[in-house]
């Protein structure tokens, strides 16, 4: 199953992470739930639901962390019988991002965490310099959104 990315520079770090960690499903998204890259999902509705839920979990946990006056939310892990779910937050050159990872019994949370660190580093290294800002038009926004969705589920 191949990875889908909104921007090409995301592909190599994502593929390396999936290959090394043995993750079954991976989403890279903004804290608002906008998907930048995915691996393993076959249906758009699954991606949208997972992104929304992941962003919600990160937001609510982040709020609890803030109430406790602790540093910002970093990661969560849920271990089920057959699957584990890992949610990690990191700061990329373009801003904070979330990674939602579903893994099976053929790997471990230790490996997922280890290669998540590599993913963060690889994404930082691969991020291109920011492009000059152009005025944001509603027509451009809709076109970009549609193009991104088409790319992710092509």
């Amino acid at each position: 199953m191949s990875a889908r990315v909104v921007e090409p520079w995301l592909l190599a770090p994502l593929e390396a992470f999936v290959r090394e960690s043995g993750a079954r499903l991976t989403l890279i998204m903004t804290p608002a739930g906008q998907v930048l890259a995915q691996h393993g999902f076959t249906r758009a509705v699954e991606v949208m639901a997972a992104a929304a839920l992941g962003a919600g979990i990160a937001a609510s946990t982040g709020e609890i962390v803030r109430m406790l006056e602790e540093p910002e939310f970093r990661m969560l892990n849920h271990q089920s019988t057959r699957h584990g779910v890992f949610l990690g937050r990191f700061v990329a050159p373009r801003g904070p991002l979330l990674a939602l990872v579903v893994y099976g019994a053929d790997t471990s949370i230790g490996l997922v965490q280890l290669f998540f660190e590599d993913l963060v580093r690889d994404l930082a290294a691969a991020t291109p310099p920011p492009a000059p800002r152009a005025p944001v038009l509603s027509a451009d926004f809709e076109r970009d959104l549609n193009e991104n969705l088409a790319t992710l589920f092509r």
């Binding site: 790997t107 471990s108 230790g110 490996l111 965490q113 280890l114």
Partner: peptide
């Protein structure tokens, strides 16, 4: 340590 733990278990 954490890298060693993950890779050794794997």
């Amino acid at each position: 340590g954490h890298a060693l733990a993950a890779l050794a278990a794997s």
